[in-house]
Design a protein around this nucleic acid. Sequence first.
DNA 1: TATGAGATCAACT
DNA 2: GTTGATCTCATAC
Length: 185
Amino acid sequence: MRLRRDFFARSVHEVAPDLIGALLLVDGVGGRIVEVEAYDQEDPASHGFRGRTARNAAMFGPPGHAYVYRSYGIHWCLNLVCDAEGRAEAALVRALEPTRGLEAMRARRGVDAERALCSGPGKLCQALAVTREHDGLPLDAPPFELHARETEPPLATGPRIGITRAAERSWRYGLAGSQFLSRRL
DNA sequence: TATGAGATCAACT
DNA sequence: GTTGATCTCATAC
């Protein structure tokens, strides 16, 4: 079943755990979401914390859209915008279990190991060829494709990764026991 | 296994 | 001019 736009018209703290196990494809390439992180506007680590700017405008747009930004000048990171009624909430997609377009991902990443294809936000965007061009695009139209999970998977939570502010908040959600997480939860 | 440096850019101060 | 929601490779233990 395809995820509809109202799926995202909720608080990110409800959407993020529901995203685990969903199928995310870009141009037919992708896999199951096994790890996400939640960011809301009260969060000093969030780009939306200091208000709207040219970069994070997508975070303040309608829910069900993509927010893509460049990190450390090198990598792209893909967020799914949630309830954005001026609240600027988004879920950062951190890791996928690759299921479709494996060869395309290997070619883009330049690595062979399946576990290394999408086990991190930057890797995932490279594997799916996500760039600034995808910033602000709706998730229910090509090239994006998002399908709801069929069964509720076992969840694990933990502290977020790679940030210096409010890192202690347990807003990282993962598929328990998955081999495709960026780090073990 | 763990820690550290380099890569490289746009937004922000 | 500084700073990251990161990744990879190198070196050390």
